[in-house]
Amino acid sequence: MSILPVSSIYLIIDLISGFFELLEYTFYRRAMITGFLASIVFGIVGTYVVIKRIVFISDGIAHASFGGIGLAFFLSHYLVFSFDPLAGAAVFALISAVGIGLMSKKKVQREDTAIGIIWVLGMALGALFFTLTPGYQTSMENVLFGNIYMISDVDIYLLSILVVFVLVAVFLFYHELQAVSFDEEFAEVAGVKTTFFYLFLLVIVALSIVFLLRFVGIILVIALFTMPASIASGLSHDIKKIMLYSWILSLIFVMGGLFLSYVFDFPSGPTITLFGGIIFIAYTLARWVRV
């Protein structure tokens, strides 16, 4: 085959049709469905993460959940019961979300210090438990960077429930969440239970991280909570539109990343993250040049 534009088009068509043939494989179909559902969560929850400036808190929660995953593997190995790593992650993520939230509210510690410490304690616990549990090295990489081959039907059901929960919560409490994000003190004075809504937001973030763990992994998950919403927030000043644009961008990042990971046979989590990262950097540079 000669290197002609026409033949390269054939090559691309081949790749795309090959990609769609892949959909017949269950795991790839699962990955696509998960990617679609995930993009809704990334778009909506990510918008709050960006505008409320809780990126660092969210990343802290994600990393802290590693401790719970390690603990679940450890207990499953040494006890007769089997613990789902997601359950362990959920327990650690929720405790750290509420812990960080209350600590920053009550001002008992400097907020960023508290987040940094909870972050590394979770990672240290996870690393320790994984070392104490023989034969789980691959599992550790899977939870850190994600592995679409590990996605089960149960994961998709759980993620669907999360999507419905997020949509209903945002529909019902849109104004409260907007008020708490924009001006917490005024919202409190006006009668909004701001501590509740702040913790509610962190709990949604925590659950989103846990349910998307197998898809992109705890280290990479924050990229998809921030990059699409950050670009979207430059395109509109209306939170609802930012959510919509952010969802569309997330969908492009996820599907584009999955396609590229298939073409180059790269791991999906890092590929999705880097694909999004290139678009994000290009967008940021373009804005910089224009300003």
Partner: peptide, 12 residues
């Protein structure tokens, strides 16, 4: 940088 218009600030 918070994305909110005047109308929504007042409605708050």
């Amino acid at each position: 940088e918070f994305p909110i218009n005047v109308w929504n600030v007042v409605l708050m």
